[in-house]
């Protein structure tokens, strides 16, 4: 579903960014992307979602090159940033309608999907209000609905649980599982290691822009260990090494 090969992206002359990142997200995967603050997670996600260009490497979404055919790639995924800066001058429903227009979803389908997702996340009543009046959590819910509206094959999420209330977090986890059950995949960054351990079947840990470990969750986290133990171990090893 998503192949990242030798991805390198640096900001100007600085060493900040990512170097030679390689990973693969298969259909059905819920893939956790973990690292310290400033490790390069957001940079990698922004390269994958076409927001940033990159210096070297290749990104394939469903076998299509991000460099050669970004429009086709973007039709297949949805991205939600760590901070949901949405068009504050639109109402919630206008924003969802805007996204539905971009993906050319028929009027009937968008009405059905918006009604269902908005009911799930309990924000139907607020959809007529300006986004500027929303709390952080409500904006996050709206961003999630807008990401699900075109039934993407790949969900790319940057810290998706921040600001969500416990019920919304459970609903989001279920939606992530639904995407995977229908043959799609989810690639997301998080600092909540407990959630990653329970929810994901694959994990990658990066430090200072370089991959330090990646693979199946159950192979990396052995019996009697937690993802937190592995993260601390790997992070400290990388610091020593």
């Amino acid at each position: 579903m998503l192949q990242i090969a030798n991805l390198t992206k640096h900001y100007g002359q600085s060493q900040k960014g990512i170097t030679d990142l390689t990973l693969q997200v298969m259909p059905g995967d819920i893939f956790a992307f973990i690292g310290h603050n400033g490790a390069g997670k957001t940079t990698a996600l922004k390269c994958v979602s076409g927001i940033h260009g990159f210096d070297e490497g290749e990104i394939l979404v469903d076998g299509i090159s991000m460099n050669d055919n970004p429009m086709e790639c973007k039709r297949r995924f949805a991205y939600i940033p760590d901070n949901p800066d949405l068009y504050e001058y639109l109402t919630g429903i206008q924003y969802l309608n805007f996204v539905a227009d971009v993906f050319q979803i028929s009027a009937r389908e968008r009405e059905e999907r918006i009604a269902a997702f908005a009911a799930d996340f309990e924000i139907t009543g607020a959809l007529g209000d300006l986004i500027s009046s929303y709390s952080h959590g409500m904006k996050q819910k709206l961003a999630i609905i807008s990401a699900l509206i075109h039934e993407p094959k790949l969900l790319i999420l940057d810290e998706p649980f921040v600001g969500l209330d416990p019920k919304a977090a459970v609903i989001l986890k279920n939606k992530m599982r639904d995407v995977c059950a229908s043959g799609g995949a989810v690639f997301f960054s998080t600092h909540v290691l407990d959630v990653a351990e329970k929810l994901c079947n694959k994990v990658a840990i990066i430090k200072d822009g370089r991959m330090v470990i990646t693979g199946d969750m159950n192979l990396i986290v052995k019996e009697g260990q937690s993802l937190e133990d592995i993260f601390m171990e790997v992070a400290c090893d990388a610091e020593r090494g």
Partner: peptide, 12 residues
Amino acid sequence: SRGDYEIQSLES
């Protein structure tokens, strides 16, 4: 904010 929106027909 009114908080009383109901899904209506949407124009594409």
